[in-house]
Amino acid sequence: MLSTLGCASGDPVTGAPAPLLDVEDLSISVRRGVPLVEGVSFSIGAGEAVAVVGESGCGKSLTSLAIMGLLPGNLQRNATGRILLEGEDLSAKSPREMQDVRGNRVAMIFQDPLTSLNPVMTIGAQIMEVLEAHRDIDRAAATARTIELLDLVRIPDPQERMHAYPHQLSGGMRQRVVIAMAMACEPQLIIADEPTTALDVTIQAQILNLLVELRRKSNLSLMLITHDLGVVCRVAERMIVMYAGSVVEAGEVSAILDGARHPYTAGLMAARPHGSFKRTGQRLVDIPGTVPPPTSRPKGCLFEPRCPRAQEKCRAVRPDLAADGAGHAFRCHFPIGQGEAHA
């Protein structure tokens, strides 16, 4: 079990304050009607780190783009779904107001630091540009703040380095610059979409340490989108598992990694060679088959065609997301019992 490593032990959700971000019944579909994301609801409290986990095509990145108001033109949101930031409905905002929300209140970090930076501008100029776009700030103050930000993300010699161009920095340093840009206007929430996937293992550890440290320092909320359960357990307190456009399990990281209730989550954990077993004679438990494409999702439970526990009912009725008493929710007719060993 992952938890034997002393993984995630976040505060229990007792009397949590009003959530910072509240996503209710969000669906996203292609204009002609094929739904890509279906009825996703979750919330992120102030200062909380929530991981959204899933494989490619599960809709985790689309969900984050919808929050940022950056969905590509050929996709649309459903009318009933709501995205509330501190109680304000973001879908009611004009494009101009959304620009203000982005950067100032919610910032985003992408996977590839090279494409999120402008290759012909120095990194200092790019950070200052963000500051000047959102703050009424003079040149000297902007410079001082830029140096402060670069220092915050642990870039050595910030006075010198702010004159560097992106290609003169390593991948890890570039991702630090991207984080500094995201932090520039002290947002309440950072959405990080696979922030360490393009990086080497040792650099990934550095960036994850940095994210943990920044959260501790500035009471930042974090929505971490990742496919890597290791990263989840390093950074997040709560997690949401998505499969084929829907949330299939949600709860505290330690609770889920200790005892996943949904067979898909259990499958994801058993599928990775994370070294919690001795090698000889062991096999990884793979999940047979592939994720169904949005055009041919099953009528019943989405995971039914690949599920080892599937029964007749699963084929006919799509289960609802139901929570146990401790805030651990799962979408399964026949969940794995507590105490039952994984796979």
Binding site: L2, C7, Q204, A205, L208, C233, R234, H274
Partner: peptide, 9 residues
């Protein structure tokens, strides 16, 4: 030590 699960200790 950089394997994320291990990186906590």
């Amino acid at each position: 030590a950089s394997i994320p699960e291990r990186a906590r200790d």
